[in-house]
Design a binder for these strands. Structure first.
Lengths: 210, 210
DNA sequence: GTCTATACCGCGATAGAC
DNA sequence: GTCTATCGCGGTATAGAC
């Protein structure tokens, strides 16, 4: 496919078969896991036969790899803005936290996918997810440590603080099928999302501001 | 098997084949998920053939059900003590939180199993996990609301607070394969566990005590 | 690029010997 | 209770017509 066609499709919200496959595969893998998803499931969602799907992706593993490649690309792109912001103090944390929250709210299927990968320890994935995210993690740890040393933030163990944020953010979006039965509301309802966003922000403001 | 044999085995750390199967199945399901685990895997871990395993459990689903039945039974038993304690204020929260933490630390495979079930929404399980835990959840929500009304605890949205605790606690134990690559230490190392336990306790003390 | 047809394998489950 | 043997199904992947 040439560049012009790509651009036209991007603008016009149309998708090549290949893109459709990645899209539906993302949903299937997120909902049912790698082993729980068959190529038939994905092909049926696209509206083609399993054998046609294998014409675009030579194997299930390679398709899964492409799904993750796109996920990481979108994720880094989306977060880059918030991270490079020149806001100061808790405002910056709030921006990054909010950007993460909004991204997860827009793509809960990505969260579920990453959670499954975290559980499996990258068994189905060629790449090492932790190694890819490690630089971002280290930057965050260093940032918190610096601000705490400067007295801008209250003192905590930076790594533990990030782990708690990781869990508080991801779990809400990854476990929606379960949490929906614990609460009386769909966790992805706009009003439920609003409550969650407010709580997380306030919780971290309280923990960090002196 | 008669009661005497059961008691002897319990004391002597021996196990019937049936118990061995449930034990190994728990580990396999936790590590590789329901779909990722074959009866061959479990049978091999026990040291018998797949067909012999099916003599004890007529189907994979029923075996999976028994794994969860035991998990819930141990979980409720373990938490009952801390919940019925007559400690007051944050001391009580600390006791329950600590009991949960220690249980998870002793049985990370249970956490991973529950997390997988939360992700799948109970697809493989006959029972509704959320419905089983709902009474406990409601009790906790009511408890926090009461204490906040009484001024013992600082005011938060009780459900959101519990959700954050849920994520902070579970994620650490469920995602160990991933977190091990993010940190420079095995998350289940005694020293790492100590740091995590301290942080969670302090974090909630800070959030709750006026 | 999609289809039909097919190869090949591993899975869960059953039957029956020991 | 454990084994061997076997069935039937659904999975990934390949070959070749259109």
């Amino acid at each position: 496919m040439d560049m012009l066609t790509r651009m036209v499709e991007h603008v016009g919200e149309s998708h090549s078969t290949r893109d459709q496959i990645v899209l539906e595969a993302t949903q299937c893998f997120a909902d049912q896991g790698y082993d729980g998803t068959s190529l038939n499931d994905i092909a049926a969602a696209v509206g083609i036969r399993r054998q046609s799907l294998l014409h675009h992706f030579p194997s299930k593993e390679l398709l899964y790899g492409e799904v993750f490649e796109r996920l990481l690309s979108v994720w880094f792109e989306r977060l880059a803005g918030a991270i490079s912001s020149d806001a100061q103090g808790f405002d910056k944390v709030e921006q990054v936290l909010g950007a993460g929250f909004d991204f997860f709210a827009d793509h809960p299927e990505y969260v579920r996918l990453v959670r499954r990968e975290a559980l499996d320890g990258g068994a189905h994935l060629g790449i090492d997810l932790a190694a890819v995210l490690r630089p971002m993690w280290d930057r965050a740890v260093a940032y918190f440590r610096r601000e705490m040393d400067a007295g801008t933030f209250r003192r905590h163990d930076p790594e533990q603080l990030l782990l708690t944020g990781y869990g508080a953010l991801l779990s809400y979006f990854s476990d929606t099928p379960f949490l929906g039965g614990l609460l009386d509301q769909d966790p992805l309802d706009p009003s439920a999302l609003g409550r969650r966003r407010t709580h997380i922000t306030n919780f971290y403001r309280m923990a960090l501001t002196p």
